[in-house]
């Protein structure tokens, strides 16, 4: 079902703080994939510190460094705009630091900070017993086989994070997929979460550039059925190159 009358509004949240790893590209991908279909799209740059607007259709949160991540979480928490928009049908894509922020809590500088409570996950430096040394940073190519119910092809990306994430007992949603290569959330062998229209993942790349089907899934949630769009062929070549380079079928 369509929310907006004509233009899909894509909010890029605090790119100055959550834009260190190229995740702003997700906004470009979403907007272009609408325009290439003859649909209207607007990217709303929500500058750090300003109130998050409630009237957008898709909210994007990207990766960032530790101190900016805390600043971003504190800034977004000043209003409940994203939560209200989500209950009105908006979608969220949160990557890496952003993924940690949409959960219950995340670590930074030796402390635990509250998140946005949009999904039932929590992130810590480690979930192992205190006497075991914390795991190393998860850095490298990552391949995720999405939950079959999503009807998505294999997800390719790059991960770079110190935290480990888990779903809280009894929380809603399901993991985005099973990790074929890389670390993802950590011990459970999964990456990310998909709960209603909220998606979290550790995949940079940007994730929507490497995985256009995920972009179209988000767009279909807020726009309804989309006119068909092939490729672009460059994306087909990229996915084939990643498949070969990462030696997964």
């Amino acid at each position: 079902m369509s929310r907006g009358p004509s233009t899909t509004r894509i909010a890029l949240i605090y790119p100055e703080l959550l834009g260190t790893y190229g995740d702003g590209g997700n906004a470009i991908v979403l907007a272009r994939r609408l325009r290439w279909r003859g649909l209207r799209a607007e990217i709303v740059n929500v500058a750090a510190g300003s109130p998050v607007p409630e009237d957008c259709d898709i909210y994007l949160l990207g990766g960032g460094e530790d101190a900016p991540q805390v600043l971003a979480a504190d800034g977004i928490r000043q209003n409940r705009a994203i939560a209200r928009a989500v209950s009105g049908g908006a979608a969220v894509l949160a990557v890496c630091a952003g993924y940690q922020v949409i959960g219950e809590s995340f670590p930074s500088g030796g402390e635990i900070h509250p998140g946005l409570h949009l999904v039932g996950i929590e992130t810590r430096r480690s979930f192992a017993p205190p006497e075991t040394p914390p795991p190393g940073r998860a850095v490298g190519d990552i391949v995720v086989e999405p939950d079959p119910r999503l009807g998505l092809p294999t997800l390719y990306g790059y991960e770079n994070h110190a935290g480990r994430t888990r779903r809280l007992p009894g929380a809603g949603g399901v993991p985005l997929g099973t990790v074929q290569r890389g670390i993802g959330d950590g011990d459970g062998g999964t990456d990310g979460i998909i709960d209603g229209r909220v998606v979290g993942t550790y995949l940079h790349g940007p994730v929507l550039a490497q995985n256009p089907a995920l972009a179209d899934l988000l767009l279909s949630w807020v726009h309804g059925a989309l006119p068909p769009l092939d490729g672009p062929p460059e994306t087909v070549a990229l996915r084939e190159a990643r498949r070969r380079a990462l030696a997964v079928s």
Binding site: G25, I28, V29, R32, A209, Q210, P232, E234, T235, A237, L238, E240, A241, R242
Partner: peptide, 17 residues
């Protein structure tokens, strides 16, 4: 080159590989 090509496609910059 494939990553760069996708980036340019979304920037709507015609190019060859």
């Amino acid at each position: 080159k494939e990553d760069m090509s996708v980036r340019l496609a979304y920037a709507e910059v015609p190019h060859s590989v």
